[in-house]
Design a protein around this nucleic acid. Structure first.
Lengths: 149, 149
DNA sequence: CATATCTCAGTAGGACTGAGATTG
DNA sequence: CCAATCTCAGTCGTACTGAGATAT
């Protein structure tokens, strides 16, 4: 869509601006990951596992923001490709323990670099200071306690 | 989702912050409009018609950012409730001319007031200056030429 | 005949729900 | 028996595609 064509009632709504910007963001990230045969949800899963260590699928759902049911599906794909490992928790055999593999960590690092470039593209015309400011304001809007490092 | 639980890899991605903020925005706006029996898309349509005057459905699609096919459906509902009018263009009978009715304008004004409050809620903890700044930065990110009035 | 517009049915991807199976 | 966990099938709202009908 050409945002310039939109009526002022929309263009002056913060929620609309956020929505349009989010569409762009989703697109650039989706493109990068699709190029690696992965999905945004799978990046979220791998990132959660790398940061918090092995997790049950329920915990993984809470950390990644994905639905419990989607965790099942996306983990299937990651496990099939050896990026994560799914094992029964011996202490509570209802649970799976999902952990990221060495290969998963490696891929994650590659993705980080690519995503970094994508974010840079997304923020396009903004100066470094403006980027920091935008991130700060969005964090405040979301009520994030601490700034992401 | 509780954004505080998310891994730093996500929390530091501008695209992720935008996505989460957009979800919030969509929710507050959707709630207001649902209370009036309307849909976000229908607000976009009415706003386009009020600002640009009567439009063909194709033009309405371009202005509102909706797919041509969705314009058909949402206009159906608006027309049935007397908020817009659909007439054949006598000069090119392939075209419909959609125009907003007096009643439509009235409802739009009511909605504006409610949406304004919703936006205020959305931006919650931000000061007036910060709100302006956020809007400015998002506009820049989207490459909007002029600031929305 | 080629093109433009509207309409409708259907598809695709994502978010979510409900219920069954297994274990505690 | 109740609760937690995982899994699967299916639903829901949204965005989009393809093709037919009508008109230029």
């Amino acid at each position: 869509m050409d945002v310039d064509n939109a009526p002022n009632r929309l263009r002056s709504l913060p929620s609309w601006l956020l929505g349009q910007a989010a569409i762009e963001g989703r697109r650039v990230v989706g493109d990068v990951l699709a190029g690696e045969g992965l999905h945004r949800s799978q990046y979220a899963l791998m990132a959660s596992l790398e940061e918090f260590g092995p997790l049950s699928q329920t915990a993984l759902s809470e950390r990644s923001g994905l639905d419990r049911s989607d965790v099942v599906r996306w983990v299937d794909g990651l496990a099939a490709r050896g990026l994560v490992q799914r094992t029964r928790d011996p202490r509570d055999r209802r649970r799976n323990t999902i952990s990221i593999t060495r290969e998963g960590r490696r891929r994650l690092q590659e993705l980080d670099a690519q995503l970094d470039r994508a974010q840079h593209d997304l923020l396009g015309t903004l100066s470094d200071e403006e980027r920091k400011l935008l991130i700060l304001l969005l964090g405040r809007l979301l009520g994030l306690q601490r700034q992401p490092e």
